[in-house]
Simulated scan of single mutants.
Amino acid sequence: MSYKKAKHILPEELLAAIQEYIDGEYIYIPRKDQHKKSWGSSTTIKAELDLRNANIYHDFLSGMARETLGEKYYLSRKSIQRIILKEKRKAANKQSLRF
């Protein structure tokens, strides 16, 4: 997100009206609903996290302890447990779709 100068964008009358409510402060103007982007849609972070989580689950299935996984991936034990449960459910759903 980048900042834009209101005096370069808004008509003087509108700028004056806004200054009646907030003068010299920062204000966030949200996107219209039809222009909103989902989290991570502009980057590769979703794919990176999916791969990391799949690797955590694979390591868990290979016998690695939760504590060791936490140290390896710099996550809390609770986060590791949450990821394992999520990946286990994902695998079960894939399995049930095959039949």
Score class of each variant (00 low, 15 high):
residue 57 Y to R: 00
residue 5 K to Y: 11
residue 87 E to A: 04
residue 15 L to D: 10
residue 43 T to C: 04
residue 64 M to A: 09
residue 23 D to C: 08
residue 19 Q to E: 13
residue 89 R to L: 09
residue 80 I to A: 01
residue 66 R to Y: 05
residue 47 A to T: 12
residue 35 H to G: 02
residue 39 W to F: 14
residue 70 G to M: 04
residue 38 S to Q: 14
residue 12 E to T: 15
residue 90 K to C: 01
residue 11 P to S: 11
residue 28 Y to G: 03
residue 32 K to C: 05
residue 28 Y to V: 15
residue 75 L to A: 04
residue 16 A to Y: 03
residue 72 K to W: 01
residue 96 S to E: 10
residue 67 E to F: 09
residue 53 N to Y: 02
residue 53 N to P: 00
residue 57 Y to A: 01
residue 77 R to K: 13
residue 85 L to S: 09
residue 54 A to I: 01
residue 88 K to F: 02
residue 71 E to L: 13
residue 95 Q to R: 12
residue 39 W to H: 11
residue 80 I to H: 00
residue 71 E to Q: 14
residue 53 N to D: 14
residue 52 R to C: 06
residue 42 S to M: 09
residue 90 K to G: 02
residue 21 Y to V: 13
residue 92 A to R: 09
residue 29 I to V: 15
residue 24 G to Y: 05
residue 82 R to F: 05
residue 71 E to M: 12
residue 16 A to I: 03
residue 64 M to F: 07
residue 27 I to R: 04
residue 35 H to C: 07
residue 62 S to I: 08
residue 51 L to F: 08
residue 79 S to C: 10
residue 89 R to K: 11
residue 28 Y to A: 11
residue 33 D to Y: 06
residue 81 Q to H: 07
residue 24 G to V: 10
residue 9 I to V: 15
residue 72 K to D: 02
residue 15 L to H: 10
residue 89 R to N: 12
residue 60 F to M: 05
residue 78 K to R: 14
residue 43 T to D: 07
residue 42 S to Y: 06
residue 85 L to Y: 09
residue 79 S to N: 13
residue 32 K to Q: 09
residue 6 A to W: 10
